[in-house]
């Protein structure tokens, strides 16, 4: 993530919280082999505003968006393994040859929760 990406994501998270909108945040926490985005890539699924950022597009991202909707409904985080190795001989855009681990969590709404400060 570049600093620019960080600023965009921070802004989006801040706005969603201020507006009290429930969102899901997907973070690529690990990759093996060749994947479209690397560890650290982020995507915010904001049902009212759409997507901010990307975890690589294509079928893999569609799986993550599905998980995001499950997480939004349940409030329970999920760890999604996106496998992009299966279709090596097809012409699918998902032919990258790698596996991504994505952590998907609900972003709490409202002003609640811990402000920064000494613990």
């Amino acid at each position: 993530m570049t600093h620019e990406d960080d600023l965009t994501m921070t802004q989006a998270l801040r706005e969603a919280r201020a507006a009290g909108r429930a969102c899901a945040l997907a973070t690529v926490v690990d990759t093996r082999g060749s994947t479209p985005r690397k560890t650290g890539a982020r995507m915010l699924v904001d049902p009212a505003q759409g997507l901010v950022g990307t975890v690589g597009g294509g079928c893999g991202e569609a799986e993550v968006i599905e998980a995001a909707h499950r997480v939004l409904a349940s409030g329970v985080p999920e760890r999604v393994r996106v496998d992009l190795t299966a279709e090596l001989v097809s012409w699918s855009p998902a032919v990258c040859g790698g596996v991504m681990d994505v952590f998907v969590e609900a972003v709490p709404t409202g002003e609640a929760t811990g402000e920064s400060g000494p613990s």
Partner: peptide, 11 residues
């Protein structure tokens, strides 16, 4: 820490 606060700390 709220994800927004965490992101802000880093930035």
């Amino acid at each position: 820490l709220h994800p927004a606060d965490a992101a802000e700390l880093l930035v």
